[in-house]
């Protein structure tokens, strides 16, 4: 019983010490100074490539907002039915519209030989498709542009930031096409690929 006051005193001293320690945690701090680097925020560029039908100027992004690849229907010239032994032409303009801060050159290429479909009519077998890289849309309708090109050629071209390039296509209908295929239709799909160079 006589030790109770001593215990109380000891408790008070301990509490005082603890409070003292807790109250002055920063008392051992020395001089210090801080500065911000203010380096800001780095932002990545987008990777936007546009495809434009050379005849209608219809434009679409190569990659749609949902991340899927876009498809663009090209208008041929001359318009109308294709006559055996003759050719029609189309072109697509590829635009490098990235917002990259530095140099950003892309290489656009015809990804594979054209895929021809005719729903079983057989017309596709009489079609020959050639693709060439061109300097301008106006060249696409020039037969001489395709003279040295082979149907198996997969042309490519470099396109600098803010610039455009053109792929021209020639579709020829074999003069030996059977008459019973007259009036039939065929679809031609040409995959394009673009990669950072």
């Amino acid at each position: 019983m006589r030790s109770t006051p001593m215990l109380k005193a000891a408790g008070l001293v301990l509490a005082a010490v603890l409070l003292g320690l807790m109250a002055v945690p920063g008392s051992y701090a020395l001089w210090n100074s801080a500065a911000s680097a203010s380096a800001g925020t780095i932002q990545a560029a987008d990777f936007r490539v546009t495809l434009t039908d050379t005849q209608t100027s219809n434009t679409t992004d190569m990659t749609l907002p949902n991340g899927t690849a876009a498809a663009i229907a090209l208008t041929t010239t001359p318009a109308g039915a294709l006559v055996p032994g003759q050719a029609t032409y189309a072109g697509v303009q590829v635009g490098n519209v990235t917002n990259a801060g530095g140099a950003f050159t892309i290489r656009a290429a015809v990804g594979s030989t054209p895929v021809k479909t005719d729903t079983g009519s057989g017309l596709a077998g009489y079609l020959t498709v050639k693709a060439v890289a061109a300097g301008s849309l106006a060249q696409c309708a020039s037969a001489s542009l395709y003279t040295l090109a082979l149907p198996t050629d997969l042309p490519s071209m470099a396109i600098a930031k803010g610039s455009t390039g053109v792929f021209c296509f020639q579709v020829s209908l074999n003069a030996a096409m059977p008459a019973n295929l007259a009036g039939s239709t065929a679809g031609i799909s040409i995959p394009l690929t673009v990669a950072q160079q």
């Binding site: 020395l30 801080a34 911000s36 380096a39 800001g40 932002q43 990777f47």
Partner: peptide, 21 residues
């Protein structure tokens, strides 16, 4: 198209000069 339009914030980087006892 990995990391297109990505951001990296470096605003939190700084320097500290602290005296040693």
């Amino acid at each position: 198209r990995t990391a297109t339009n990505a951001t990296y914030n470096l605003g939190g980087i700084g320097y500290a000069l602290v005296q040693q006892a």
